[in-house]
Amino acid sequence: MTAELTREHIFSLLENVKDPEVPVISVRELGVLRDVEVSDDKVLVTITPTYTGCPALDMMREDILAELHKAGITNVEVKQTLSPAWTTDWISEEGKRKLKEYGIAPPEKTADIRALKGELPVVECPQCGSKETVMVSAFGSTACKALWKCKSCLEPFDQFKCL
């Protein structure tokens, strides 16, 4: 068993742990999984919340434990860290592509000048690709999303808020 207990192996197992709210994207792609340390026969997994009050974090912790237990790894500690604070820039490019395919407009980069000035970004409709979109509400179905609609295909959609 110790032969399997490498950092890389744990990371690959944790690819199966998805965001419970957006089940196409893994905790690594989301940037919630910060680190894995293996010492002797103990595994320490470090995660960070997206939003402070996000209830999905507790479930992610449970899912991480369950996934590792399934692989026979039981000496596991999941540690939560606040610093450095999570940013949507940590969502991987692949993660952003998956969000879009799932129907959620991915966040723009925080370095985007519009984000700095507090202006609304140009958000592409994840269904039809139109840039003729408008924000309906600054808050959406979960803490991390805002509600938008497309003026071309008339469909509503979620946008991942830039944080």
């Binding site: 919340p49 402070t52 009050g53 600054a138 959406g140 179905s141 509600l147």
Partner: peptide, 20 residues
Amino acid sequence: LEEDIALTNRALDLIGQARN
């Protein structure tokens, strides 16, 4: 509906900060 959701989103952020 949108504002109902907005206020509870706000509440969620605040409860997270309160927990910390």
